[in-house]
Design a protein around this nucleic acid. Sequence first.
DNA 1: TCAGACCCTGTCCGATCGGTCAGTTTGCCA
DNA 2: TGGCAAACTGACCGATCGGACAGGGTCTGA
Lengths: 190, 190
Amino acid sequence: MSTQEELRTIALAEFAAAGYGATSLQRIAELAGVSKSSVLYHFASKEHLLEAAIGPAIDRMQDVLAPLEGAGLLEGDRTAFLEAFVDFLLQYRLEVNMFINQGPSLVDVPVIERANALVRRLAGFFSANSDSLEEKMRFGIALGGAAYMLCTVQTFGLPEEPGTLDETRAVLITILSDLLAPVSATTALG
Amino acid sequence: MSTQEELRTIALAEFAAAGYGATSLQRIAELAGVSKSSVLYHFASKEHLLEAAIGPAIDRMQDVLAPLEGAGLLEGDRTAFLEAFVDFLLQYRLEVNMFINQGPSLVDVPVIERANALVRRLAGFFSANSDSLEEKMRFGIALGGAAYMLCTVQTFGLPEEPGTLDETRAVLITILSDLLAPVSATTALG
DNA sequence: TCAGACCCTGTCCGATCGGTCAGTTTGCCA
DNA sequence: TGGCAAACTGACCGATCGGACAGGGTCTGA
C-alpha cells in the first residue's frame, strides 16, 4: 500500500473514532510512520485529506438515496432500495459512522455539506407536519436506526459483526421491510 | 436567569450544535455577553462546564435504561419502559443529541464515559453473536433509531416538532412497541 | 465606614494547531 | 554516472486554544 493510501486509511479510522477536529495531522503522521510535512505533501490540507477519506462513500450515499427523491419510492422498488441501503451501510461503515457522528458539526466542509444537504431533505421528509406523521417517523427510524445501530456497534469496539455479514444483511432487510410495511408506496419525499 | 444558568444553557446548545471540541470558551463568553474569564470563574474548567451542561440528563438516562439490565424487560413493563424512554428523548433532546454525536469521541471525560459505559453494555446486547440476532437488532434499531431520528430532526433545524409533542410521543411509542412486538420478554441483557 | 464575599475583567502564558518553505533523500531513466 | 522529479523532512510561523493570575467594581452586614 502506498503512503498516500495508507494515510487515507489511517485518517478515515482516526476521524471516525476520535473526530475530525480532535485528530491532528501530527497524530496521523505518527500512526503512518511519516512526518506531518509528508502528510501535507500528499494532501494539500487537512480538509483535502478528509475529502479523500470519505468522498467516495458520500458519492455512493447520494446514489443510494437518490430513488427517494422526486416521485417517491414505488412499492416494487422498495426491496431493491433496502438491499442497496443495507449494503451501503455494511460496506462503508467507517465513513457512515463518521458522517453520522460529525456531519452536523462540519457544516463548512463542502464534501460533508453535500451529504448534509441530502440528509436535511430526508429529515424534512419525516419532520414536516402532515397527516401521516407515523409513516414519516417509520421511515426515519428505519433508515436512521439501522445506520446508527451499526455505527454504535462499531464505535464501541464490540465484536466486528453481529452474526455473519450475510446474516446481518438478511436480518436487517427483514426488519426494515417489516417496519416500512405500513408505509404506503408513494408518500416518500412527495 | 443568572449568569451561571445562562452560561450552562448556551454551552449546552453550542456543544450540541458545533461540538465540544469545536466550541471555544471565548465563543460561549461572547454569546453570553461576558468575558472568557467570567466563564472560568463560574465553571472551574471547560470540562466542568460540560459536566454541568449534560450531567443531569445522563443521570436521568441511567435511570431510564436501568430496567434493561439484569433480569431483563418483562412483558408487562415494556410499555412503561417505552413511555419513559420516549419521554426522556423528548425532554432532553439537546443533551441526547450531543451525546449521540460526540459520546464516542469524548471517552476521556468522566461524565460522558459514564453514559458511554451504559451504551456499551446495551450495544453489546444486540451485537453479541447468538441465536436471536433479529431480536437484538430490533432492540437496537428501536432505541437507537428513535434517538437518532429526533436528533437529526433537531440538528438540522427543521420544524421544532414533527406534529404536536403529544402526537409525536404517542406515535413514537406505537412504532417502537410494534417494532419490539416479536421480541420475547426475557431476552434483554440476559 | 470599612471589611469581606461575590462577580467580573484584562493580561499573560505554554501548548498545540494547520500550514509554509527551503532543503535533503530516494529512485528511476537516459 | 549524471540528472531530474517525486517523496520526504525539520524548522519555523501566526493563530488559537484552555487556563492562571492579579486586580477592580459592587453590594451587604457589622
